[in-house]
Amino acid sequence: MNKPLLTIGVTGLNAIDSPGPGVAVIRGLREATSFDCRIIGLSYESLEPGIYMHDIVEKTYQIPYPSAGMEVLMSRLKYIHEQEHLDVIIPNFDAELYSFIKLSDVLKNMGIHTFLPTMEQFEERHKVNLNAFGKKYNIHVPRSKSVYSVNEVQQLEKDYDWPLVVKGKYYDAMLAYNFDQVKSAFNKISAKWGLPIIIQEFIHGTEYNVTGLGDGSGNTIAAVPMRKQYITDKGKAWGGISIADKEILALTDHFLHSTKWYGGFELELMKDKNGRYYLLEINPRMPAWIYLAVGVGQNIPEALTRLAMGWSTDAFTSYEVGKMFIRYAWDMIVDLKEFEQISTHGEL
């Protein structure tokens, strides 16, 4: 039987110490059994390792940063589409999702499919809105409050126990054991990421993650829970193991069912000493460890691509428990000519 050939654009080729998911997503796509694919890399910088992995990426084009605006991004994508005739784009960075979600209709009219959360889903899962999210969907979340001045924290003291987690709007989190530490964390983080600062209750416990895929109608197409076994100093998993946990799977089903989530996602969970799960964060895309899901029998990149194409897709019902992923670093030897090519022409 002839398998269809899809041309798929993938971002997040920065397989570095704090990696983007692109390369792992591509490995899943390459192993897809229901279609063949040509992979077009979409990179922001000249040194993203995926650009130089010619055995898995056919060709890479540089695209402008989201901060340059959608108009500029769109004209670049039009150019790339003229050359490559893309069927699907899988964006993998949080920062670019806003633009791709907004552009998804335009892309669709050009024949480029995406499978992304709606703008409403994207916004309401935002860190700043986590409390409201928990209330709306009846999911335990750590209590948190957005504050605009250090003094507001003093009023929280009576409702919260030490330590507190002080979080930035986009990135960064610090643990504070007293008011002085809150103050210093507040100043440091707000200088970098602006206001508000999120003050969050600290949940003692063990961290779990689950990645999966929602079809937009409330069904779970895939879900694989994992426990991190080795964490880098940047807090990234460098090794992890697939686990069987009915509660996590039930929580994932509930999340997908109640939000009618579209697309890939990762939930960051904390299990406290009473065995209760708290939802800490929702990443609206596949995580960098997505290849573990592929390896245990749920090829999420493949299923997501099928959904994007509008093809019928069966839900995965099982996965292998107790499989591990162990990440490793690998030095490629690259000719300067290649770096020159991507740097001067924006294509390689």
């Binding site: 910088e45 540089q62 402008p64």
Partner: peptide, 11 residues
């Protein structure tokens, strides 16, 4: 620079 996208050659 490694940490910088280059706009050379881009449209």
């Amino acid at each position: 620079e490694s940490n910088m996208p280059n706009k050379f050659g881009m449209r």
